[in-house]
Design a protein around this nucleic acid. Structure first.
Length: 473
RNA sequence: GGCGGGGUAGCCAAGUGGUAAGGCAGGGCUCUGCAAAAGCCUCAUCCGUCGGUUCGAUUCCGACUCCCGCCUCCA
């Protein structure tokens, strides 16, 4: 089924067709983290969204080159490096490592490339030189190089592709005016920032003088290097539409004269407990904060994946608790299927699974601009139907394997997998054995007491026709 | 002030010009010695408010109202 996506450039849903003549390869660039702190849950919504896009493309048999930059030089970073009296590399390295760890905790597939801005200074400089040569960039009195929107528009280029811009009506300049930048026009933006004393050791030599890259240029330089002057998909949070992505388009198209990106996808923000996240409201969470509360990465991933990417999502701790229950329902069903399937290998059914009701309804939902809510609905309907068959023993081993193959197919997109089987400690299994013995002897008082004790220790014991089942809470 | 996105059950969240998916919580039931974070069933005469178009609107149009985002570092 043809995948349709909402393209911010056209503000409408279109069928996604790759630029590749074979319609196989897809270049996808996602604006990555600025590594000055631990990423928060809002950031993670965007990265999980990017992971959903990438997995959906791979599910649709595309060969995706997924690139995500690491912005490791920027105003806030420099400020903190100075305050903490450390080095740029040491400071950013710490948060980059944490970011990649968190990405893994959320089961996001690692991008094929994660280029760092500081390792692409020559490419950045080359791009700026191109813009200067083309007359759309100029060096100001303060030594910085700026992009001229007026000149860019003057040569027939379109500034304001991602949103309607009315520069006269905008309140631009309120803050910029108080800055010491010496731009010709307030809308112009820095390509190269001249070195100032506060930058400390953070500067590079360039034909324009010592300094460092502006905020937007690294994404243009690195995406063009990795994916070419024109590529398929570029995504990021909705706040990046302007100015970041608009400026990326201007720099890239201004330098190459070619269309930069075919499809722009933007993920909406989230609220936490119904309010905008803020440290003073106490609703500002990093992934690490949530893990410390006892939640797991897969629960957070599930919750972030329950709402449509273009809608504001209300992230709540109650919702996270609900995610735990919902996943347990899936785990239970998949676990039972595994037991029934026995030695049958799901891989033998992988191809046929594509024709299953589950995979069909799931992929139809995804193809409709990533309607993930409808996709989950198809999963839970499948769980309910499957449970009925399991309950009346009407599902033979090979059918269980087929059902599992279908689940594995949809999970290649969802990425929630199955809860890792917890190792049962000797103490717990000893207690469970003792309970079984007491039960057999019809000493129910004793067996129930042990069940309560197990629960206190974090384990639930269930009696099934095949014996007891221990589950970690 | 300019531009944009929303208000659907206790909570989260899809969706459609023809009578409201799914998840959590709640209720009922089943298996069970009793249970269960086990399973099944159930749970919105109604989709912010008021008008309009229509045979018919939650869905289209208008007004009002509340919330959120971008315009400035920001996922």
């Amino acid at each position: 089924m043809a995948l349709k996506l909402f393209n911010t450039l056209t503000r409408s849903v279109h069928e996604f067709v790759p630029l590749d003549s074979q319609k196989k390869k897809v270049g996808m660039y996602c604006c990555g983290p600025t590594v000055y702190d631990f990423a928060h849950i809002g950031n993670w919504r965007t990265f999980v969204f990017a992971d959903l896009v990438r997995r959906t493309l791979e599910f649709s048999d595309y060969d995706v080159t997924h690139v995500m930059n690491i912005t490791d030089v920027e105003d806030k970073i420099i400020k903190r490096v100075r305050e903490q009296k450390t080095t740029l590399r040491e400071f950013t390295g710490k948060f980059e490592t944490a970011f990649l760890e968190d990405l893994k905790t959320l089961n996001c597939l690692p991008p094929k490339q994660t280029p760092r801005a500081t390792e692409h200074i020559p490419e950045i400089i080359a791009l700026i030189e191109k813009l200067v040569a083309r007359g759309v960039a100029y060096k100001a009195a303060d030594g910085s190089v700026y992009f001229s929107i007026e000149k860019y528009r003057g040569c027939g280029c379109h500034y304001g592709q991602l949103l309607k811009l009315n520069l006269d009506e905008m309140r631009a300049g309120e803050r910029v005016a108080s800055d010491e930048y010496e731009k010709e026009s307030v809308a112009d933006f820095a390509l190269w920032k001249a070195r100032v004393s506060d930058d400390g050791e953070v500067f590079w030599p360039s034909p324009f003088g010592e300094g460092r890259p502006g905020w937007h240029i690294e994404c243009s330089a690195m995406s063009i290097k990795a994916l070419g002057e024109t590529f398929d998909l570029h995504l990021g949070g909705e706040d990046l539409k302007f100015p970041h992505h608009e400026d990326e388009i201007a720099q890239s198209e201004g330098a190459t004269g070619k269309p930069f990106v075919k499809f722009w996808l933007h993920g909406a923000h989230l609220l936490v407990e119904g309010k905008k996240m803020s440290k003073s409201l106490g609703n500002f969470f990093t992934l690490r904060d949530l893990l410390a509360k006892g939640f797991t990465g897969r629960e957070v991933r599930y919750l972030l994946l329950t709402a449509h990417y273009r809608e504001t999502f209300n992230f709540t701790l109650d919702g996270l608790a609900g995610a735990k229950s919902a996943l347990a329902r899936i785990d239970e069903c998949v676990g039972k299927l595994r037991d029934i399937a026995g030695d049958f290998k799901t891989s033998e059914f992988a191809k046929q699974a594509t024709d299953s009701l589950l995979v069909k309804s799931f992929s139809a939902a995804l193809a409709d601009d990533l309607n993930i809510s409808a996709a989950w609905a198809s999963v839970f309907e499948w769980v309910r139907e499957t449970n009925k068959h399991i309950a009346d023993n009407s599902i033979p081993d090979h059918e269980a394997a087929f059902a599992l193959a279908a689940w594995e197919k949809v999970d290649s997109v969802l990425g929630v997998g199955v809860k890792a089987e917890a190792e049962v400690p000797a103490e717990i299994s000893a207690l469970a054995d003792e309970r079984t013995a007491a039960k057999k002897a019809k000493d129910f008082k004793r067996s129930d007491a042990i069940r309560d004790e197990l629960k206190v220790k974090g384990w639930v014991v269930e009696d099934t026709p095949k014996g007891i089942k221990l589950k970690r809470i």
